[in-house]
Design a protein around this nucleic acid. Structure first.
Lengths: 349, 349
DNA sequence: AGCGGTTGCTGAACGGGGTAAGTAGATTTC
DNA sequence: GAAATCTACTTACCCCGTTCAGCAACCGCT
């Protein structure tokens, strides 16, 4: 019967530094110096230690290391959005993949919590993780107005990086996106195609980046003599369908609609199909987030594309810098690129 | 300047049991008994300890606890699929959410690694995590033929649960799906609608569950006098588009197609649109996995629906049992339900 | 008074690493 | 030739929570 079958009742003995020391007849300290590349051991001894460690399949106990070194080499991430959104929206997975690539490259790990849309739980999780010394830092996604998470991490001294809209006056490192610039790309694209009345199915206004997008769209539109009508919806298909329906069936419907996410844009496509409105002949659609999904539907969606895995990599890198004690930085992520596909075309005459 | 700004250079002092003991003028041991609900302390003392602990914001150091208790209360999960697939396929997020709900309920955490399709990396990760005492168990997704991960976890004594096709003769707990039963649902549905020639765009045959599906489809079809043609493709949109094109443009094209995943089914929809083949009037589509995506496209897809979060919850529960030393079980997950939507209809005359 | 039993606590060791301080022995320096 | 300096180690203690053995003080019982 294997150890796996009996679980903890027959725990597998894993080698420790003490085992190596005993095997070679030297002290634990010498083994430690040898394994960590520290001076103070003869080259020959070091070699024998490394050999035996390899042979015994030795790995440093993360607990022991954390206990003495006070670093866990673990980064925390809480995904707090309504469950159905998390599972539909591919942003999180793409971001996660980027974060992970940096972490695993440096031998760090990611502690993940998936919770519903309960800000209190999110805060409690950070506090507990930090209190229990489980993590060395956290990535904060989706900045909100007067975000209480910023106060929390500053108060308890938890290194963090804030990913969100343009941020002012917070003492932690931030990644911000130029939503105005991105808005300009969309409006320009649609204006070039002759559209003069643009609908905007926006995500919840509690998020800093959503407000920034609305501002950006208004300004860009004003500069080009275009009108923008914003309607707000949750980041879900059904809510977006409903919002799109309101836009397209109202008085003076827009000839183009911008959606706050790929999932919302897909909802829009469904509504257009249901109403018998052809895309892009009668209405043009643009998604404010690109993913494989936008290419999986017909017509393929014109979308603002940004390198989300790169965003995740950047977040991880900045966080590791913060953990290492670097002064907080404020970094602008590379601007999006507008990928024109089949869902946007000339405005109807 | 806050501690967060200076990172490790000014580490936040977090309270320890020693602090509580000193503050109350009692021993560390008494504090430990009080905090853990152990006998050996007077009720009044216990109360004072808990009060002070609360006041100081004390949390047990997970490292110290793991070091003496030899449990980390952490479960590992490696997602190893091509990056673009992980980010498109919503299965993983839904599964993850289910796993997480059980873990967080019991105060456990999830250590996540996202890697490309490199089985060797996956194995190395398990070995390292276990060697470093970072985890108490792992969830193995997507069983393959002669899966080397099973040998590994049995050899090193790492508690695990295997999620995959029907499994025989492995010594670790397994969750298996009755793919034959599910296949029967699909074939029956299509046969009832008059289809006599069914296409099957299947995922890679290296996965146990994919082979089981093919077998199940063949048997169910034979029993009902229906023909099945299987073509294999990777779990991606483009590959599925291509496979669908081969099926629909070949000699004697099928009147219905079953797809191995929701993403593949969306690829099929695009191909049908591109070829001008109407769904469901000219060809019916069924997806062998349901998600929000299937309702986001037009037409909405008929799909085999299973409760993926519940699957994740079950996996977590079984793993925690295994960690606790329970004998390995083999559990069948509840069968899928066929949700008929707009993409399947009567066979064309 | 003497005995066993319970209650409520303390001291010490342990787990597995890291590291400052100390110490032989060999080598260099003046 | 004595002193200073290296080299290659060892000893000892730290991190923090758990746990075992020990020990007074107090209880009721004979």
């Amino acid at each position: 019967m294997s150890a796996a079958q009996t679980g903890t009742s027959e725990p597998a003995r894993r080698a420790t530094m003490g085992d190596i020391a005993r095997h070679l007849g030297i002290s634990k300290a010498a083994v430690s110096y040898a394994l960590n590349g520290q001076p103070g051991v003869a080259a020959a001894t070091r070699e024998r230690v490394l050999e035996v460690a390899q042979e015994m399949g030795w790995h440093a106990s993360s607990s022991a290391r954390a206990l003495s070194g006070s670093q866990t080499q673990v980064v925390g991430l809480v995904l707090s959005r309504p469950p159905d959104l998390l599972t539909t929206e591919t942003f999180f997975m793409r971001f996660l993949a980027g974060v992970e690539s940096v972490l695993s490259e440096r031998g760090w790990s990611l502690l993940l919590r998936v919770i519903g849309d309960h800000p209190a739980d999110e805060m409690a999780t950070y506090e507990r993780w930090w209190g229990e010394r489980r993590i060395d830092g956290v990535i904060l996604l989706d900045e909100r107005y007067r975000d209480p998470r910023v106060d929390l991490v500053e108060r308890i001294g938890l290194p963090a990086v804030l990913c969100g809209g343009p941020v002012k006056g917070v003492g932690i490192p931030c990644l911000w996106t130029d939503q105005s610039g991105d808005a300009g790309l969309v409006v320009q694209h649609l204006a070039d195609l002759g559209h003069r009345r643009i609908g905007h199915v926006a995500g919840p206004g509690e998020f800093v980046h959503e407000r920034a997008r609305r501002r950006g769209l208004r300004r860009a539109a004003a500069a080009l003599g275009v009108e923008v009508v914003t309607v707000e919806a949750a980041y879900t298909g059904p809510e977006s369908e409903e919002a799109t329906r309101r836009l397209l069936t109202g008085d003076a419907p827009p000839t183009a609609v911008v959606f706050g996410s790929d999932v919302m844009a897909l909802g829009g496509v469904r509504t257009a199909a249901a109403l018998g409105v052809r895309v892009p002949q009668e209405v043009s659609f643009v998604s404010w987030d690109d993913s494989q999904l936008t290419s999986l539907v017909a017509p393929r969606l014109t979308a603002l594309q940004r390198d989300t895995p790169a965003f995740g990599r950047l977040a991880a890198t900045v966080l590791l810098d913060a953990v290492a004690g670097r002064r907080p930085v404020r970094i602008q992520v590379p601007p999006s690129v507008l990928v024109a596909r089949e869902s946007s075309g000339p405005a109807p005459a």
